[in-house]
Design a protein around this nucleic acid. Structure first.
Length: 275
DNA sequence: TTTTATGTTTCTGG
DNA sequence: GCCAGAAACATAAA
């Protein structure tokens, strides 16, 4: 579900609720979510007594900064965090539950159980997976025109696949790639190494702008996304093509169409985005 | 009832 | 190295 703007919104809302709380205990109802350490009992043991010092974000990953460790959480398609009183009943899709010393609970809910969690000793998280292969965030000064142009230049892959590739740039997913390519006027099937520098500059600029606007709007809610306060995003009102199949293009009036690109549903305006 | 699609990522076979 | 397809799962819509 969540791409960079949704994860950023979760980060901000969640931080208000759990900052400076101390973990008393942890329950894990679906162990497959825990990827590191291998042993779930060790996962729990590492967290006991740790306080949440900060929550940061890298690409689509949330980073719970603890006293001695970093808990890296990826929401994949349906992951959500919510804060409860211990007395509230635990839902069917709650798979990890953190109890705080003040009696409140942080619950990780994930209908499809695709989410992941890793724990690293603070300072070691960037040199191993899942964070070590990530490209720059779009907001990172390292995400320059020259950087992106060089990456595009050396691959025959279609541009949509490259933008979805988190080792190139971290944070774009299916919605924002479609929106970025529409705004840049580039067809998703175009080979990356065929793009002119001007087109690459447009893609870069629109990627950054689109994500910035989406963060301001609290993300995009198409079907199930809500932040940690249970609030929906508002950016769906600003979408040009994603989910707009058969609707008139907001720029030219022609019908938006949906195709399959790299196995993903892909929305374009065929007259604004020529192949 | 059955099939298809879903905001993600990773693995396998060709 | 790249692509297609499947897999990890559950659910709502067609």
């Amino acid at each position: 579900m969540p791409e960079l703007p949704e994860v950023e919104t979760v980060r901000k809302t969640l931080k208000q609720f759990v900052l400076n709380k101390t973990i008393d205990d942890v329950k894990v109802y679906w162990p497959n979510i825990i990827k590191k350490p291998d042993d779930v009992e060790e996962f729990k043991q590492l967290l006991r007594g740790q306080s949440i010092v900060d929550i940061s974000r890298r690409g689509k990953f949330l980073l719970f900064q603890l006293d001695d460790y970093v808990l890296i959480s990826h929401l994949r398609m349906e992951g959500k965090y919510s804060v409860h009183q211990a007395i509230e009943s635990v839902k069917k899709h709650t798979h990890v539950l953190f109890t705080f010393t003040d009696g409140k609970e942080l619950r990780y809910n994930d209908v499809r159980k695709f989410g992941t969690m890793h724990i690293y000793v603070k300072g070691e998280e960037m040199s191993d997976k899942p964070l070590n292969q990530l490209g720059p965030d779009p907001f990172d000064p390292a995400f320059t025109l020259e950087y992106l142009y060089q990456k595009f230049k050396k691959t025959e892959r279609i541009v949509k696949s490259v933008l979805l590739d988190q080792t190139i740039v971290a944070g774009l997913g299916n919605i924002y790639v479609d929106e970025t390519l529409f705004r840049a006027g580039v067809h998703p099937l175009k080979k990356s190494n065929k793009l002119t520098k001007k087109e690459v500059q447009k893609i870069r600029k629109q990627a950054i702008l689109t994500l910035e606007e989406a963060v301001e709007q609290g993300g995009t809610t198409i079907r199930s996304y809500v932040n940690s306060q249970g609030e929906m995003g508002m950016f769906q009102q600003e979408l040009f093509v994603y989910g707009q199949e058969n609707e008139p293009c907001k720029k030219c009036g022609n019908a938006v169409i949906k195709l399959k690109v790299g196995g993903r549903g892909t929305h374009i305006c065929p007259s604004c985005q020529k192949e």
